[in-house]
């Protein structure tokens, strides 16, 4: 079988995930990452997806995916049920992002969370100079049709991790297409220059 191709930002996640692990992809879309990891790393993968079309496509392809919602359905999973959980580009669309994050680090030893950085310079300048809600590559929606209801910046996210005492194991600054940049997401420059960021979190061992 050919190696399935996946998006650049998902490739980064795929490279992090350990072989043979148990993984949950929250918001797995049509299952690209799951299919890739099952084939390339023999991962025992599960998925959750809001859109029925996405779920059906996944299950048609033999993936273990349920129709579900990060806000309501993560609480069912047992503590430490997974080695890795992935929430890619979805946090800003959840109703209660802090609870979602809490559940992610509860149900999995490691949580990968990526999101668009609302403090990127292009976002800042659109608001500052034009006085309009930003529309960028990472945030392609108009104010009236955006699913993103809880925007955050990289610094907001880091502050929340500190408040919640999450361990930040990795912090990767990403450009618009999801390619890693040569700087840590925690750096001052990344706050301005990174269009997206990807964090690997875990519960702090108290």
């Amino acid at each position: 079988m050919n190696t399935p191709s996946i998006r650049v930002d998902l490739r980064l996640i795929a490279d992090m995930v350990d072989p043979d692990c148990r993984m949950l992809d929250v918001g797995c879309g049509e299952g690209g990452l799951l299919a890739y990891l099952e084939q390339e790393k023999q991962v025992d993968g599960r998925g959750m997806e809001l859109s029925m079309a996405g779920v059906n496509e996944c299950v048609r392809n033999g993936l273990a995916v349920i129709q579900g919602d990060a806000d309501t359905d993560l609480k069912d999973y047992p503590t430490d049920g997974f080695d890795w959980v992935v929430l890619s580009q979805t946090l800003q669309a959840t109703r209660r992002p802090r609870e979602v994050l809490d559940n992610l680090v509860r149900i999995s030893r490691r949580a990968v969370v990526s999101f668009p950085n609302f403090a990127h310079w292009r976002v800042r300048t659109q608001i500052l100079l034009r006085g309009r809600m930003p529309v960028t590559g990472a945030l392609p929606y108009s104010w009236y049709d955006t699913p993103n209801i809880h925007h955050c910046t990289i610094r907001d996210f880091i502050a929340t991790c500190h408040e919640e005492r999450y361990e930040i194991e990795q912090a990767v600054a990403l450009n618009g297409d999801g390619t890693p940049m040569r700087m840590a997401a925690t750096s001052a420059l990344a706050s301005l220059l990174a269009e997206q960021a990807l964090f690997v979190l875990s519960r702090k061992s108290s």
């Binding site: 148990r22 029925m52 779920v55 299950v59 069912d76 047992p78």
Partner: peptide, 18 residues
Amino acid sequence: VVHALNAAAASVSFVEID
């Protein structure tokens, strides 16, 4: 049933057909 299976960390697919 899906929720219960999730809580048991089972491998589960769930589809609602329109």
